[in-house]
Amino acid sequence: MQTVPIHQAKSQLSELIRAVEQGEEVVLTRHGKRVIRLIREPETEQPSIEARRQAIHAELQALRAKVGAGKPTFEQLWDEHKRERDARGAAWVDDPKAPDAGR
């Protein structure tokens, strides 16, 4: 493990990074006190795009099953709203002070 003052680390950052990449631990100090420890990032395997796509697809199917079970779709609700709006007629639009206005 290397211990390096911060002011010195500024001028040799590239070398310190190389040392960390090779598995060495580097501790940066300020006035002799440990401030930060530099360690190598662990190797992680990224999931493939196909695996991510499949996971998203499975989540969407589960959500659709949970939300859409026996309930009307947005399109059905919108069509019903338009039918009700049209049934109220032009009076509802033309006379905002009418007793049924806005309902």
Rank of each mutant, 00 (worst) to 15 (best):
55 A>F: 04
21 E>D: 15
56 I>T: 03
31 H>V: 13
73 T>M: 01
70 G>D: 03
97 K>D: 04
78 W>P: 00
76 Q>V: 13
92 W>P: 00
92 W>I: 00
81 H>Y: 15
95 D>H: 13
47 P>Y: 06
46 Q>K: 08
81 H>E: 05
14 S>E: 13
18 R>A: 09
35 V>I: 12
52 R>L: 15
92 W>H: 11
29 T>P: 04
53 R>G: 05
79 D>L: 14
100 D>F: 13
42 P>Q: 12
49 I>P: 03
62 A>V: 00
69 A>W: 11
73 T>Q: 02
30 R>G: 01
66 K>Y: 14
70 G>E: 02
77 L>R: 15
7 H>L: 07
15 E>R: 13
36 I>C: 04
2 Q>F: 06
82 K>I: 15
26 V>A: 10
39 I>E: 05
42 P>F: 10
88 R>T: 03
6 I>P: 00
73 T>S: 14
95 D>R: 06
94 D>Q: 04
85 R>P: 00
1 M>N: 07
74 F>W: 11
94 D>W: 03
28 L>N: 00
66 K>G: 08
48 S>R: 05
7 H>K: 12
56 I>R: 13
24 E>P: 02
5 P>A: 10
24 E>F: 06
9 A>S: 10
5 P>V: 00
28 L>M: 06
95 D>A: 07
8 Q>K: 11
70 G>H: 11
24 E>V: 04
44 T>P: 00
23 G>W: 08
60 L>W: 08
60 L>Q: 07
91 A>S: 11
7 H>Y: 06
57 H>Q: 13
13 L>N: 05
33 K>P: 01
47 P>M: 06
90 A>C: 00
65 A>R: 04
24 E>I: 01
37 R>E: 08
39 I>H: 13
4 V>G: 00
53 R>P: 01
48 S>K: 07
18 R>V: 00
66 K>W: 15
2 Q>T: 00
46 Q>C: 09
86 D>K: 15
103 R>G: 01
40 R>A: 10
43 E>G: 07
10 K>Y: 09
53 R>T: 08
85 R>L: 14
82 K>C: 12
62 A>H: 03
32 G>K: 14
23 G>T: 04
29 T>W: 02
15 E>P: 02
22 Q>P: 02
84 E>V: 07
71 K>A: 08
26 V>F: 03
18 R>Y: 04
35 V>F: 10
102 G>K: 07
91 A>C: 06
23 G>C: 09
88 R>S: 07
90 A>K: 08
14 S>D: 15
55 A>T: 11
64 R>C: 05
15 E>K: 14
55 A>I: 03
96 P>D: 11
69 A>Y: 09
32 G>Y: 12
84 E>H: 10
37 R>N: 14
54 Q>A: 09
1 M>G: 08
36 I>R: 09
43 E>L: 08
51 A>D: 11
84 E>R: 14
43 E>Q: 08
51 A>W: 02
15 E>C: 03
54 Q>Y: 02
63 L>F: 12
2 Q>I: 01
30 R>C: 02
13 L>W: 05
57 H>K: 14
80 E>P: 08
75 E>M: 14
75 E>N: 13
48 S>T: 14
68 G>I: 11
7 H>S: 10
